[in-house]
């Protein structure tokens, strides 16, 4: 009369299994022995470096590592709740986050691991822009420009009276915080009427397909797409030469103010008490130069890596920044500030 399939039995099995599952899981979630797993979360910009380190570390040492992408801000939220051992950041820790960590009793060791150059790009068909001064970028991106600055001529009288289309980082990203600090002078202060995306490929696509467009994103995305978009040289201040972002200009410090250090923040508690975390950071710093180059980011100069290594050995906690993404600090000076 009917098929062999008996739903009644299936349902009974499923029901029992669900109950057992629920009963066991609650016990286990509490007793989660996650100490042997190194938990890392944070910036999507720093992710490729950490991924490379984690991959090699896991092969060499057989210690489990997980890496998530929550953005710099989201990463710090988890870090200051004690959910992660290491937080990746594309900007220094902000005062709000410092307070959250302090309230939870979490101390951290600030370690710069690489450089990135925020690259301002235009469409390759745009021929009238030879360089941007920081002043011009500020005019274009500051909050007061919203709804007012609509054509290139309004920024520089020498440019044509054609419309401007803007593409920029999403407001949750460290890239947004750093760009606004460097250009406008205050983190998170930007005009709102631009196309924002956390996915830099969307920004590349936007600028590549619109002759009126300009935007900014990390150097690795520019390098991969250098035929589709054109980087604009930046004039740091009046009288200074226009500098194109490149490995050399970032490492010798002439590409200012848009070159930025990338960080990992290591929980001091984990660093001191969890030998796995210590081994991981040792491995990170020992292999940073090769791996950073391999994933097409810009490594720190040798003397700065030496200084970072020294800093890690002393395990001094705290940040060298005052709770905002300060622009143009030398890493060697920065580390000296941390007492």
């Amino acid at each position: 009369m009917q098929s062999k399939f008996v739903p009644t039995q299936l349902l009974k099995v499923a029901g029992v299994a669900a109950l057992v599952t629920a009963a066991f899981s609650i016990q286990h979630a509490d007793a989660a022995d996650k100490n042997d797993i190194i938990r890392i979360d944070g910036s999507s910009t720093v992710y490729p470096i950490t991924e490379a380190v984690a991959e090699d570390f896991q092969k060499a040492k057989r210690i489990k590592v997980t890496v998530g992408i929550s953005g710099t801000g989201g990463g710090f939220k988890k870090f200051c709740r004690g959910e992660t051992d290491i937080s990746e950041a594309s900007r220094p820790i902000l005062s709000k986050e410092m307070e959250a960590c302090k309230a939870a009793g979490i101390e951290y060791i600030e370690l710069p691991v690489a450089y990135d150059a925020l690259t301002v790009v235009i469409n390759p068909k745009n021929t009238f822009i030879k360089s941007f001064t920081v002043e011009e970028l500020k005019k274009l991106w500051e909050p007061e420009a919203q709804g007012k600055i609509k054509t290139w001529k309004q920024i520089n009288a020498a440019w044509p009276d054609t419309p401007v289309k803007l593409f920029g980082a999403g407001s949750d990203s460290g890239t947004f915080d750093y760009f606004t600090e460097a250009v406008v002078g205050k983190a998170k202060s930007s005009r709102g009427d631009f196309t924002a995306s956390e996915d830099d490929n969307v920004l590349v696509q936007g600028v590549a397909s619109d002759v009126a467009a300009t935007g900014y994103f990390g150097f690795a995305y520019y390098e991969e797409n250098s035929t589709r978009v054109k980087a604009v040289p930046i004039v740091a201040k009046a009288g200074a030469p226009a500098v194109l972002p490149s490995r050399e200009t970032v490492m010798n410090g002439t590409y200012q103010p848009l070159s930025r250090p990338l960080f990992i923040y290591v929980s001091a508690n984990a660093a001191k008490n969890n030998p796995n975390v210590k081994a991981f950071v040792d491995f990170y710093l020992a292999n940073a130069k090769t791996l950073v180059e391999e994933v097409k980011y810009i490594p720190l100069p040798a003397n700065e890596y030496a200084a970072v290594n020294e800093h890690w050995k002393t395990m001094k906690v705290g940040t060298g920044f005052g709770g905002e993404p300060e622009v143009g600090v030398k890493i060697t000076d920065l580390l000296k500030r941390i007492k």
Binding site: Y47, T50, E51, A54, E55, Q58, K64, V65, T66, V67, G68, I69, S70, K78
Partner: peptide, 9 residues
């Protein structure tokens, strides 16, 4: 809910 991105085990 916080799925991971890199997990090699």
């Amino acid at each position: 809910i916080g799925a991971l991105t890199f997990i090699a085990f």
